[in-house]
Design a protein around this nucleic acid. Sequence first.
DNA 1: ACGTGCTTTCAGAAATTTCTGAAACCACTG
DNA 2: CAGTGGTTTCAGAAATTTCTGAAAGCACGT
Lengths: 213, 213
Amino acid sequence: MASEAPISDPHPREEDIRRFVEAWGRMGSVWGISRTMAEVHALLYITGEPLCADDIMDRLAISRGNASMSLRGLLDWGIVSRAHRRGDRKDYFVAEQDVWAIFRAIVRERKKREVDPLLASLHELRDHTREAQRESGRSGKADDIDGRLDEMLEFFEMASTLAERFIGPSGPGLRFAATMLSKAPLPGGPKRGARGGARKAAQRSGRVAEDGA
Amino acid sequence: MASEAPISDPHPREEDIRRFVEAWGRMGSVWGISRTMAEVHALLYITGEPLCADDIMDRLAISRGNASMSLRGLLDWGIVSRAHRRGDRKDYFVAEQDVWAIFRAIVRERKKREVDPLLASLHELRDHTREAQRESGRSGKADDIDGRLDEMLEFFEMASTLAERFIGPSGPGLRFAATMLSKAPLPGGPKRGARGGARKAAQRSGRVAEDGA
DNA sequence: ACGTGCTTTCAGAAATTTCTGAAACCACTG
DNA sequence: CAGTGGTTTCAGAAATTTCTGAAAGCACGT
């Protein structure tokens, strides 16, 4: 109400927010959503406050339609939710604040739309192959193909199960496991300097010109 | 070879291969490559034999340029390599056959081009924020933003380290860990069978195909 | 050196994805 | 029940990505 826009303090943070939004937006492709959708999420996340469609349109300079669709998408993914203010008919939106919850949602969605269908095809295909092979005696080649199919299937089944656990009720358990695994106790000793470097290693964004094998 | 008419379906496998290629192609987006590139890889993988550019062009019905670029991409990713036949000047291509090696390569590449840059931005941003905050005393809001930035950073650092391990020399260790984690010892009970076929296939992968890392 | 067989490059064409703006909609309120 | 404030939808526009085909480039054998 009263304090709504501290114009005198033109948000020194505003610049930081902009930058975060931009960085996060570029990641959009990684989790399979559009840049704008990612930016909307970034804005809501970093801001931490409920924002309405107009706030978002303004700050991101996007159209109403785009804002609406992005928000809808985010809502579907379950990483943003609606909120209301009394005496205000606008819809406000807030982003899930728990990073792990965010990533669980991402994994859940991607698995659903990309891994599951693939797994289905692979199974179907494998069955078909098996059958065909049986009824025609076996020709040498088929065995190899079958084997490769199996290996692939096995891998994806493992990945799928792992993902299920991550997103499932025991998610927190996995969280623990992941944290542990990343923390360096593996047997075999610290042979490489890799890990300490994690911190700074990030810089080399440039393409590695290791052409021509 | 003179005949190439698949109309009479000379190879009963041909149809299976086509289906695998198609399914795999759709996954392309998941690992951030184009559909065609994924299909080329699928063909080489499932086929298991060295194929030359023309084989690929024909079977996938794509242009020479496209084939060449896709192959190059695959080569860069390190999941396909060149091979030659004596007395034949053509380049032939073979796909890495170890599924785990394939996925290590994928993780390596994606991390390099998507996570690392993000991590770099995030670090830079955090530093900037920190500094700005200090020199202006602290305004309540900034703390929150900083906190969220930190959480995000922490998460990505964990993920990054985990990825490094997966692709690094101790990759096999992680393979073990992942397999274990997916296999059902967690409290909560085994709800679904991801079962049996897996076992058999496991044997094939016994020989560890060390890829260059 | 030259021809040959094959590979790579690249500018523009085609396909696909994302964004806009305006109209249709909905749910309250007066 | 008309008005108001807000949200959603959607057809076409714009941007981006992917594909093609032809020309340029390479390396080898003769």
